[in-house]
């Protein structure tokens, strides 16, 4: 036994020595708030094409705070975000670096910052995914405000307010409704929701299996659930489409270039790489999102953005109020209330 353990430690020392000696130059450090399964195929392809080693840290929108905290000791090169608001917030804080790449300039100015420091890669629309075996399209709530109705108590799922897509969405609602009404919505929805989870994957699976009738997700989670082998009897409602409805909220996921990045040139390479048509197709077909580079095909179930009414909020405007919105969410207690 003693021998086994001694050998074991000898191996451990050896391994540790090896990993400690790894060379640093050809690296790229990516902080990602996105689901790992969406990002990993892209970073792997980048590693294979360029030989640059990608060190990926998968987290959530709290990485925005981590980036701020590390301002004087920058660790990350790239921030992969679910939400344009968070990226613009970082830019306003002076944490991003401008990028003059022509590939970035080719993107619709609606979905990038003027200085190119962040750029949207794919669009996502906030929809209500529902289980078609449990509820019919007619009976589904048609607007987000209806989620406050006590008749839905315990029947639907939402993500925590800490989720990036949720923060931006609440920010957009706040523009439409103002502080008071938004707080009322947050408080009532929090009380009404059957469960509050940290990610959207949980929601699409639970709604697909009939655990809950419906849930608030980004549209590609609906596309992903449709493509499952089972539990795929799901539909989606694009909310607030009525004549006087405010429209559905469209956000962009994207990447931001960090100021003072240790591997700045690799980071720019990575941004250009992501905007190539091949990678954009990966967004469209692996992740079932709607790519932002013009002319890239999408999966057939994805509604085109001109097929439905969209909220008139500019994504850049969310950046300025991002911190206020987070405070609002915290005050309503939706930031980490995981359990009922």
């Amino acid at each position: 036994m003693k021998k086994v353990i001694l050998t074991f430690f000898a191996i451990a020392i050896f391994v540790a020595a090896l990993s400690g000696c790894s060379a640093k130059p050809g690296e790229l450090v990516v902080y990602s708030a996105r689901n790992e399964s969406f990002v990993l195929p892209l970073t792997t392809a980048f590693e294979q094409q360029t030989g640059i080693k990608v060190r990926l840290l998968t987290g959530n929108e709290a990485l925005v705070n981590k980036l701020g905290e590390e301002k004087n000791n920058v660790q990350a090169d790239i921030f992969f975000s679910n939400d344009a608001g968070a990226m613009e917030f970082l830019r306003l804080q002076g944490l991003l670096q401008a990028n003059k790449s022509p590939a970035v300039a080719a993107i619709d100015p609606l979905y990038r910052s003027d200085d190119g420091s962040w750029v949207g890669l794919s669009a996502r629309t906030r929809v209500l995914i529902y289980n078609t075996d449990l509820i019919s399209e007619e009976n589904m709530p048609k607007s987000l405000w209806e989620l406050t109705d006590p008749k839905w108590e315990g029947q639907f799922m939402i993500t925590r307010g800490g989720n990036g897509s949720m923060v931006a969405h609440v920010a957009a609602l706040r523009v439409a409704w103002g502080d008071e009404r938004t707080t009322e919505w947050l408080t009532k929805v929090r009380a009404n929701a059957g469960v509050i989870v940290s990610g959207h994957t949980d929601i699409r699976r639970a709604v697909g299996s009939g655990e809950y009738k419906f849930g608030l997700v980004n549209n590609y989670y609906y596309h992903l659930q449709l493509a499952e082998d089972k539990d795929n009897n799901v539909g989606a409602i694009y909310p607030d489409q009525g004549a006087d409805g405010m429209g559905a909220f469209v956000n962009a996921a994207g990447v931001a270039l960090i100021k003072g990045a240790p591997n700045s040139s690799n980071a720019k390479k990575f941004v250009d790489f992501l905007l190539q048509p091949e990678q954009q197709r990966m967004f469209a077909f692996n992740n079932k999102e709607v790519p932002l580079v013009p002319g890239v095909e999408t999966v057939s179930e994805a509604k085109r953005i001109d097929e439905y009414k969209v909220m008139s909020v500019r994504l850049q405007d969310i950046g300025a109020v991002w911190a206020d919105v987070k405070a609002l969410i915290e005050a309503a207690g939706l930031d980490w209330d995981l359990s009922k």
Partner: peptide, 20 residues
């Protein structure tokens, strides 16, 4: 506790730290 979606002091500290 957090995998089972419950909340106690420990998970609360974790989330507060997560949001720095």
């Amino acid at each position: 506790i957090s995998i089972l979606r419950y909340n106690t002091f420990t998970t609360a500290i974790y989330y507060q730290m997560g949001s720095f």
